[in-house]
């Protein structure tokens, strides 16, 4: 530029451009950036760890106040603790999904944002996958971080009580289980969100599905506790195996089922006490039943989103 006066009128952009393969990451990154700016996100993320705090306190007192022959810590079944913590965090993770995920497509539909996305070199797949990752990753991280921290705390403090001894692969299992809710909520959020033009309606619909299906879970849980025969946890007086399977027909139930499969534990021991005491633990579902249902639902939800997300209205 030789002229002492710069030309500030419109000019072209000739700067660098990134490879087209990672456009979905831009979408995901922006979505997560917007999620963590919400105050509610941090509230729920902290709430997600509540059960670990309770365990922390309980174990501390059990370790210091009891000892010798009656050391309660010796009775702790570690995989059960994680299954329970995981089950009890469900409602929090669901709330988080409502907060960050359910409006993802419906709000975009309301604002015609899709025209912006698709007007750029960014495909429908980029858009959907980006949104999916943007929901899946935060939820998974919120599920994983307290669990992993708790695991390492226990490893350091209570190794002698079988943290490793009971299950060598507890840590990878924790990580794997943490992705179960993220994957499921992300898929369902996209599917449900794409059916509505307002985030609030989509949220209402998802909450409806969650709580009605949750009612089934709770009803069966109650039925189990009532009908349970106190004869050891693997020989519960299972009244009806199909009833047990029905427990898993819920937004949270199916994830709990998958977690039970991953940990190979039915979560019968709540904090401490004999697993034979009978906490109404529902047996581990069969993997051949849960896995297809889980992935089937996820795939169906993503397919709905894929069909519903269109740059042009079809004129009939």
């Amino acid at each position: 530029m030789n002229s002492p006066i710069a030309d500030l009128s419109y000019r072209n952009y000739d700067g660098p451009l990134s490879a087209p393969g990672f456009r979905w990451w831009v979408v995901a990154k922006t979505m997560m950036g917007m999620a963590i700016k919400k105050r509610g996100f941090w509230v729920w993320a902290t709430m997600g760890a509540y059960w670990y705090f309770i365990l922390l306190v309980m174990f501390y007192f059990m370790d210091t106040l009891t000892g010798g022959q009656i050391n309660l810590m010796k009775q702790v079944i570690w995989p059960d603790q994680f299954v329970n913590a995981f089950s009890l965090a469900q409602i929090v993770l669901f709330s988080l999904a409502l907060l960050i995920g359910i409006g993802s497509i419906s709000n975009d539909r309301r604002a015609n944002a899709l025209l912006v996305y698709l007007g750029k070199p960014c495909s429908k797949a980029d858009y959907l996958f980006g949104k999916w990752v943007g929901i899946c990753l935060p939820i998974s991280i919120v599920a994983a971080v307290p669990a992993v921290l708790f695991y390492f705390y226990c490893l350091m403090s209570y190794r002698t009580y079988g943290v490793i001894g009971q299950d060598m692969f507890l840590l990878p299992k924790i990580l794997l289980a943490s992705f179960v809710p993220g994957f499921f909520h992300a898929s369902l959020c996209l599917g449900i969100s794409s059916l509505f033009d307002q985030g609030r309606l989509a949220g209402g619909a998802y909450a409806g599905i969650y709580f009605i299906s949750n009612l089934i879970t709770k009803a069966i849980q109650v039925a189990y506790i009532i009908s349970e025969h106190p004869h050891g946890r693997h020989s519960v007086g299972t009244p009806n195996p199909s009833l047990a399977n029905a427990y898993y027909f819920a937004v949270d139930g199916i994830q709990i089922g998958l977690a039970k499969i991953i940990f190979q534990s039915d979560g019968g021991q709540l904090i401490v006490g004999s697993p034979k005491g009978g906490n109404g633990a529902i047996p581990i579902p069969s993997i051949g039943f849960i896995l297809p249902v889980y992935f089937g639902i996820c795939a169906a939800a993503i397919w709905i989103a894929y069909v519903r997300v269109r740059p042009v209205e079809v004129i009939s």
Partner: peptide, 23 residues
């Protein structure tokens, strides 16, 4: 009328640029 919900004007335009592959 179209925009990305929940964004300020400049964030929206920058995001559109990023979607087009700009760093």
């Amino acid at each position: 009328d179209c925009h990305i919900p929940g964004m300020s004007g400049v964030a929206f335009v920058a995001y559109a640029g990023e979607l087009a592959g700009m760093p």
